[in-house]
Structures are given as C-alpha cells and as structure tokens.
Simulated scan of single mutants.
Amino acid sequence: MEHYKYFQNKECEYFPCHKTDDPDNFNCLFCYCPLYHLGDKCGGNFTYTSKGIKSCINCMRPHLKENYDLIKDTLVKNQ
C-alpha cells in the first residue's frame, strides 16, 4: 500500500504550484521542499536568480509520487 507517500490538495489556491503535464499525479506531500536547505546538494533542477536566491520553479523532484524514497534517502544521507 504505502499511501503515506502521496498526498494531493486540489483545493489549494496554488495547485499545482509547478507547471506539469500530469496534474493528476502531482504530489503535494512535500509542499515546501525538505531538500531546499541543502543548496546545490539537493539534486533538483534549480537555478539561482540574479540576486543569488535559489529558484526551484522548474523542479518537480519533490512532487513526483515515485520520488518519496529518494527524498527520504537524500535527507538521511545529508544529515
């Protein structure tokens, strides 16, 4: 089963918060990415703005249902 690895809130005013071709499989569990604080070690598709702020606008890594274990393992590895 493993239903705990996926949550979706279609009533959220920001849903989906990233452009996606597959909104029915958009995972809201990690609404705020737990990997953000890892900076360039997060493994996601991020860029830095001209002011040096990390932008994750093009990153779907935490919003894919199948990436739950990858997110968890990355957190454990970078404790």
Rank of each mutant, 00 (worst) to 15 (best):
M1Q: 01
M1S: 13
E2N: 14
E2G: 01
E2T: 07
Y4V: 06
Y4R: 09
Y4N: 14
Y6Q: 05
Q8Y: 04
N9R: 12
N9I: 03
K10Y: 02
K10D: 02
E11R: 14
C12V: 00
E13P: 13
F15H: 06
P16N: 06
C17D: 12
H18E: 06
H18D: 05
K19I: 10
T20K: 11
D24Y: 00
D24M: 09
N25G: 06
F26K: 05
C28K: 02
F30L: 08
F30T: 06
Y32V: 11
C33R: 02
P34Y: 00
L35K: 03
L35G: 02
Y36W: 08
H37Q: 13
H37P: 05
L38Y: 05
G39A: 06
D40K: 14
K41N: 15
C42L: 07
G43I: 08
G43N: 08
N45T: 11
F46L: 06
T47K: 13
T47A: 11
S50I: 11
K51T: 15
G52M: 07
G52C: 08
I53R: 13
K54M: 15
S55T: 02
C56V: 03
I57C: 07
I57Q: 10
N58T: 11
N58M: 10
M60I: 11
M60G: 03
R61T: 15
P62D: 08
H63W: 07
L64C: 11
K65Q: 13
E66A: 14
I71E: 02
K72C: 12
L75K: 04
V76R: 11
K77A: 14
K77C: 06
N78D: 01
Q79G: 13
Q79V: 04
Q79K: 14
